[in-house]
Each structure stands twice: as C-alpha cells, then as structure tokens.
Amino acid sequence: MKFLLSFLLMITFLNADYNEGKEIFDNKCASCHKGYISFSKLKENYFQRNNELLNLEMPTVNMLAWAIMESSRKIGDPSDPEMRVIEIEEYLKEYLANPDINNSICDAHVLKYYKKKEPMSISDEEAVNLAYFFMEYKENRLKSTPQKIKVLDKKYNEKELLKEAQEQGKHFLVYATSQSCYFCKKMKREVLDLEEIQEKINDDYIFLEVDVDFVTLPFNLKKKFKGMTPTFFVLTQDGVLLNTYPGAWVKKDFIEILKENL
C-alpha cells in the first residue's frame, strides 16, 4: 500500500506543471475570475465600498490562490506538499462539479457578492495541473513582477507616482534615509533586504527610498520630517499621510507597521 501511494504521488508530480495549469486557468476560468488585484484594493472594495468599486462577481485569481494556500480554510498541510497537491486536486474536481457556497473556502464576508457558479467538469490531468498552478501562483507572480524599490532622484514626478499608486491600489511607503546613517544600513541588512519583507511590501505598497541629504521628500513630507534617519512615512494612494515611524525597527515590529496601515 505504501509503495502504491508513493507511485501515485510520483506520477502526479511528473504530470503536474505550473505553466500547463496557467494555460488551463486562462482558457477555462479567466473569463469569470479576473487577474491579480492588490489585496489593499480588494479590502477597500469589499469592506469599505460594498463591492461598488470593482463590482466583482467571482474571486480574482490571487484571491483563489490565497484561499487555497494561506487562508484559515486552506487545503492540505503546508509541510506535506506531495499530499497537498492531491488534496487540492480532489477539492477542485468536487467543487467544480457541484459548486456549493457552503463548501466554499472563500471569505464568508465576500460570498454574498458572487453570482451562482455553474457546474464545470475537468479531467484528472487538468485538476492536478490547476492544483500546481495555485500552489506556485504567488512565487511565479513575484518572479514576473519583482520588488520595485524606487530610489528617488531630484527629477521625480509626483503626478506619475500618484497615478501608479492609484492604478495598482497601493499605499506609499516612503523611506527617509542617508548614506551616513548607520541604523539605515543595519535595518536594510537585517529587515528590508529579507525576501519575506520585500514580498509583504510589494503586495500592498509602492516603496520610495529618499536620500534626504540630496533629494526633497515627496508629498510635502518635509514639514513632518524631524531629521531622524531612518524614518518611514505611510501614505494613501492619494498621497495623504497616515502615519510616521521614526527610527529603526526589528522584523517583527516592522511587519506590524505594514499590517496596521491596511
């Protein structure tokens, strides 16, 4: 029995492929499920605008991937990826064949906005490739849209920055630093350069690095700046200041800063 299970797992992984799954999703699912929309914009849409901002009738692709892989209703054990892909495969086949809101893994708060899904049949091969697509979605999205750290020079354009933030539905995280700042270098090395931190920033923020010895802070922040580096400013997508955080921060506290402004 153990040998048979190992054999089945091996066959599953040999046939599974992220790109194949993406093609299946694009051909069979993308007409209903929209592409990536930042979670900050999704939160605004559902929790502040009652879905009147985006008028979504189905969850976006990143909402599906998050629900399957990271939510409280996530499928399978993250420490056992071989078994997890099979559990996701089985869930997809069962749910698509008989869509039932009571069996959905989406956030209960947003389900009321969705239209009834029609049954859909997929093959075992399609299901396993879709499972792989969702399992590797976040990693591949980050590879295709790497962390953008904008180091502002004297010629930056505030209107262009605001346009970018509004199009992406992201806040600004403005980082006041200087070349002579010891604690800036320490925090960069121990916190800002960490892949986990860069992913969290890139999900919800446009990160602007400003060397205050040479470049003026954007959005009239000079009036709020007390001269301490590092200092972090969090602003809305419209350039409105939400919070100011002077000083260097350890990883745990910096993650809380990122969370509390969303």
Rank of each mutant, 00 (worst) to 15 (best):
K117H: 11
T229A: 10
K252I: 15
G169Q: 06
K150S: 14
R73T: 15
E136K: 04
F47Y: 03
M58K: 15
K138N: 14
P246T: 08
D17Y: 07
N129G: 02
R49V: 12
N129A: 02
G239A: 02
Y113N: 04
L152T: 01
M83D: 12
T145A: 12
N62R: 05
D17S: 08
E89S: 13
K2P: 10
V191A: 04
T177F: 00
L53E: 00
K259D: 12
T244F: 08
E158R: 00
L221Q: 13
I75E: 02
L173H: 01
E82D: 15
M120P: 08
L221A: 15
L54F: 08
L258A: 04
F172S: 00
L64M: 15
Y36I: 08
I88L: 08
V151P: 01
S38C: 02
M228L: 15
K226D: 10
F254L: 03
Q179V: 00
P230W: 07
V215F: 09
K226Y: 09
T231A: 11
I37K: 00
E118V: 11
K223M: 12
N19K: 12
N202P: 06
V85Q: 14
I24R: 09
P59C: 03
S121G: 11
L64R: 11
Y91G: 06
K22Y: 03
N157L: 00
D193R: 03
N50P: 06
S71Q: 05
K112Q: 07
F219I: 12
L173Q: 01
E256H: 12
E139H: 05
V85Y: 15
P81T: 10
K200P: 08
T12I: 08
K150T: 15
R189E: 11
D203K: 09
L54P: 03
D100H: 10
E82F: 11
D100T: 07
D203W: 01
P218N: 08
L221G: 08
N27H: 03
A67K: 09
L130I: 00
E125L: 15
E126D: 14
D203V: 10
I86F: 11
L9A: 11
Y114G: 03
D213F: 15
Q237L: 08
L262M: 11
P146F: 13
L258S: 02
L14S: 11
L235Q: 01
N45P: 06
H171F: 14
T12P: 07
K224L: 13
I11A: 15
I257Q: 14
Q237Y: 09
K150G: 07
G247Q: 05
A97H: 14
K259A: 13
K223A: 13
E126G: 07
Y137R: 05
A131M: 05
S72P: 00
K226I: 12
Y175H: 04
A248G: 13
A97P: 12
